Computed example of a mutant assay.
Amino acid sequence: MTRLLSTGRDSVNYPDRGATRRRDLPAGYHHLHHRARIGHGQAVFEAAGTAVTTFGAHRASGMLVRAAHGAVRPGSRVVVGIGLGPLRISAPCEVIWTAYEPARTGFAYGTLAGHPERGEESFMVFRDPDGTVWFEVTAFSRPAAWYTRLAGPVIPFLQRCYARRLGRTVRKLAAAA
């Protein structure tokens, strides 16, 4: 585990590093776009941004998260896990890029060797000029393990469900702040 959480130069296991930032997602992958209204105002934006960039939203959504750092930063390693006991699937990732801006906060991580998928996923909080706050997930992925290939269309369905769950979780965390 220590090696996975180091910030070495091991590369992600897909060739399209950073594509979620450009939003021109590469062909040959399943694409995911999910956008959810979180609330309104600067306090909601800040609370939602903190929930996203510290993995608070991931943890509150039921994921086990082991991160090398408290807040995300490029090169940080994270292992996200789902399941129980011996049925837990660990998904090692590296933070590819971050955004800490006045109206945009979030990050993207890319998959590393050992992840059941190959690809990248971004988690962003936006504040419109009128103060409306949005949470958005953008991803591209394809199977990297026999069991994700075998699962076929179930994996994209589960990814959409999780993106929706994250949106609801970010909304709740931001409202509670």
Rank of each mutant, 00 (worst) to 15 (best):
Thr7Asp: 15
Gly8Leu: 07
Glu94Met: 07
Leu64Val: 12
Gly62Arg: 03
Met1Gln: 08
Arg59Glu: 12
Glu117Ile: 03
Gly75Trp: 05
Arg118Val: 04
Trp146His: 04
Val72Thr: 14
Tyr147Phe: 15
Val78Glu: 15
Thr20Cys: 15
Thr138Gly: 08
Arg22Asp: 10
Ile96Phe: 02
Leu64His: 02
Pro143Ala: 15
Ser141Met: 09
Ala71Asp: 00
Ala57Asn: 08
Val133Tyr: 01
Arg21Ala: 13
Glu117Pro: 03
Leu158Gly: 13
Phe45His: 04
Glu46Asn: 09
Ala68Lys: 05
Pro129Asp: 14
Arg164Met: 02
Pro15Glu: 14
Arg23Phe: 01
Glu120Arg: 04
Gly81Trp: 02
Val95Ile: 15
Thr148Glu: 03
Leu64Ala: 08
Asp16Asn: 14
Ala151Val: 11
Phe157Ala: 09
Arg160Glu: 12
Ala19Ser: 14
Trp134Thr: 04
Ala47Pro: 00
Val44Trp: 09
His31Leu: 06
Ser6Ala: 13
Tyr147Trp: 13
Ala36Phe: 02
Phe126Trp: 05
Arg171Gly: 00
Ala176His: 13
Ala144Asn: 13
Glu117Met: 11
Ala176Ile: 13
Tyr29His: 08
Ala91Ser: 11
Gly49Asp: 11
Glu117Val: 08
Met124Glu: 12
His31Ser: 08
Ile155Ser: 08
Glu46Gln: 07
Gly110Phe: 07
His115Cys: 03
Ala91Leu: 12
Cys161Phe: 10
Met1Trp: 07
Pro74Asp: 15
Gly114Ala: 05
Tyr14Trp: 02
Arg9Cys: 05
Leu5Asp: 04
Ile38Trp: 00
Arg73Lys: 09
Ser6Asp: 15
Ser6Arg: 09
Arg73Tyr: 07
Arg164Gly: 06
Gly75Val: 11
Tyr147Gln: 00
Ala175Phe: 02
Phe140Lys: 08
Leu158Tyr: 01
Tyr100Gly: 01
Ala27His: 07
Ala47Cys: 06
Gln42Cys: 01
Ala175Leu: 06
Ile82Arg: 14
Leu158Lys: 12
Thr20Val: 12
Thr138Arg: 14
Asn13Leu: 07
Leu4Asp: 08
Ala48Gln: 09
Arg160Asp: 08
Trp146Cys: 05
Ala175Pro: 00
Gly18Glu: 13
Asp10Met: 10
Thr169Arg: 10
Tyr147Met: 13
Arg164Asp: 05
His40Ala: 04
Arg164Cys: 07
Thr53Asn: 15
Arg168Met: 04
Glu46Trp: 02
Ser11Asp: 12
Arg171Met: 00
Pro26Asp: 03
Phe55Ala: 06
Leu87Asp: 02
Pro153Phe: 00
Thr111Ile: 03
Val12Gly: 02
Tyr109Lys: 05
Ser61Glu: 01
Arg22Thr: 15
Cys161Val: 11
Arg9His: 10
Tyr29Lys: 00
Arg165Ser: 13
Val170Gln: 01
Met124Cys: 06
